[in-house]
């Protein structure tokens, strides 16, 4: 029984690693059982798992920052000036 407990018991540190791994590749059957047992009992790791998949999705989505048109006019002018000096080289 103790042996079984040892197999099933996962530290939070190890659980967090498996959560990261799971976002990339399927876990082995043992890992999968270990992780789901752990997250059922441990609220913190349950939160960690759902939030990491949220972060993963957010990072994958093209979060474009908006660019300010007025600032772009200055940049355009500076680029054109730079190109002109390249041209004269």
């Amino acid at each position: 029984m103790n042996k079984l407990k040892n197999i099933l018991m996962l530290s939070c540190k190890r659980a967090a690693e498996l959560i990261e791994k799971k976002l990339e590749a399927p876990l082995s059957t043992t890992e999968s059982v270990q992780l789901s047992m752990h997250t059922k009992m441990c609220k913190a790791c349950g939160n960690y798992q759902s939030q990491q998949s949220l972060i993963d999705r957010a990072l994958r989505e093209d979060c474009k920052s908006s660019s300010n048109e007025a600032e772009c006019e200055d940049l355009k002018a500076s680029i054109l000036k730079q190109l002109k000096s390249e041209d004269e080289k």
Partner: peptide, 22 residues
């Protein structure tokens, strides 16, 4: 070449910056 690039600068700078900035 200068004419072509000038046009491209006018047309695409803002979307390129938006892309790079993120």
């Amino acid at each position: 070449a200068t004419d072509i690039i000038t046009e491209l600068v006018q047309e695409h700078t803002s979307e390129l910056v938006a892309f790079a900035a993120s």
